[in-house]
């Protein structure tokens, strides 16, 4: 199935990705963001907060946004 995955860590890329049936939100995060701690991100499923066990459905929208990003001085 297809999932619209938005990774706002770094470049903020958006992709339609292929995901196996029955994949949970937590599993997708582990696959796409290896070594990262889920607590450091705002993870939204169809624009809503969701638990890691939530099973993804075809055409759903998953976004991952860091809660902390380094700013700078101009």
């Amino acid at each position: 199935m297809k999932v619209f995955f938005l990774n706002n860590d770094g470049g903020g890329f958006a992709d339609q990705i292929d995901v196996a049936e029955g994949t949970t939100l937590g599993k997708l995060f582990a696959q796409r963001m290896p070594g990262r701690n889920a607590a450091d991100y705002l993870i939204r499923l169809n624009r809503q907060p969701a638990v890691a066990e939530e099973i993804l459905s075809d055409g759903c929208r998953v976004s991952v946004t860091p809660v902390k990003i380094h700013g700078a001085a101009a």
Partner: peptide
């Protein structure tokens, strides 16, 4: 704001019309 590491994300989000991001 000097967005630093968020500059690309902000720009990309705006260009794609994803205001909330």
């Amino acid at each position: 704001l000097c967005a630093g590491d968020a500059a690309a994300t902000i720009s990309m989000s705006l260009r794609a019309g994803r205001l909330c991001d």
